[in-house]
Computed example of a mutant assay.
Amino acid sequence: MDSAAVDARAPADACGGGYQLLEAVPDAATYRHLREAAGLSPKTEEAARRGLAGTLFAVLVREGGETIGMGRVIGDGGSFYQVVDIAVLPGHQGKGLGKRIMAAISGYIEREAPPSAYISLIADGDAQHLYSQYGFVHTAPKSVGMAMLKH
């Protein structure tokens, strides 16, 4: 079920255990599968297609020919960046792959985001510990996240 769109800007990076990390945007089917299998909210085909087109940066983790993890950065490319879609298939969790994804995203942000850029994410459950390792802190009480989901 995998035919990720490869971004030719960066070669694959071996991340141990037979895994490879590469800068690439997943196709809509792979994206939807990873989100649902990793316990993130499902997205329609249309939402996935439109959203993926707005990706500033993305990484995939592959094992053999299968994409088993991903992470993306979206935003306006100047003032605002949001880290989204950090997902690793359950059978591959606990192997440091989330850290590899976040390290690649952090490298992108360090290289590309100008001073004063606001970088945000929504941390679900246990993932807060992972994100704090990359400099993310709680914004409350100064600000709190709010969301709206279109049904």
Rank of each mutant, 00 (worst) to 15 (best):
I74T: 14
I122M: 11
R50F: 07
L121D: 02
M146E: 03
L97E: 02
H138G: 10
P90M: 05
G145P: 00
A117Y: 01
Q133N: 13
R62K: 15
E110I: 03
G18S: 07
P26E: 03
E110N: 10
A147D: 13
L52G: 03
G54L: 10
R111W: 02
R62Q: 15
M146Y: 08
L56D: 06
P90S: 05
G16M: 07
K99L: 11
L89N: 03
V6C: 07
E112D: 12
V25W: 00
D7H: 07
I68P: 01
I101N: 00
K95L: 13
Y31W: 09
M1F: 08
S41K: 11
L21V: 10
S116K: 12
A5Q: 14
H129M: 09
D124W: 05
A14P: 13
A24C: 04
K142L: 10
H33G: 06
I86P: 00
S79Y: 11
A140L: 09
G39T: 08
V83Q: 01
V137H: 12
Q133E: 12
R100Q: 15
G54V: 05
A117K: 00
L21Y: 03
G107I: 00
T67S: 14
C15S: 08
A58F: 02
Q82K: 07
G98H: 00
A12Y: 08
G107M: 01
L22N: 02
S3P: 03
G94C: 06
V73C: 09
I109G: 01
S132E: 15
T44I: 08
S120R: 05
T30W: 00
V88D: 01
A117V: 09
Q82G: 05
Y108I: 02
A4F: 13
G77R: 04
G18N: 02
R72S: 05
G96I: 06
D7V: 10
K150L: 14
S106K: 11
A14Q: 14
G78R: 15
H33K: 12
I122G: 06
H33Q: 07
M70C: 13
G16F: 13
D76A: 11
P42M: 03
I86C: 05
Y118K: 07
D2V: 07
A24S: 12
K142N: 11
G54Y: 08
R111Q: 12
A58M: 04
I122R: 05
I74Q: 11
L121C: 07
G77F: 11
R50Y: 03
R100S: 13
H129Q: 09
L60A: 09
E112L: 02
K150V: 10
Q133V: 02
S132V: 02
D126L: 06
E23S: 10
G78A: 15
M102E: 04
Y118R: 13
A103M: 06
Q93G: 03
T67E: 09
G17E: 05
P141A: 07
L121N: 01
A140F: 12
I119K: 01
A48P: 10
S3A: 15
I109H: 01
V144K: 14
S132C: 09
G65N: 12
L52T: 04
A14H: 09
Q20L: 14
A8R: 13
G75A: 10
V83D: 02
M70I: 04
R32S: 04
A8Y: 05
R50H: 08
V25P: 00
R49I: 13
V6W: 12
S79A: 14
G135P: 03
S106V: 01
G135L: 08
D2F: 04
K95Y: 05
D85G: 03
G69P: 01
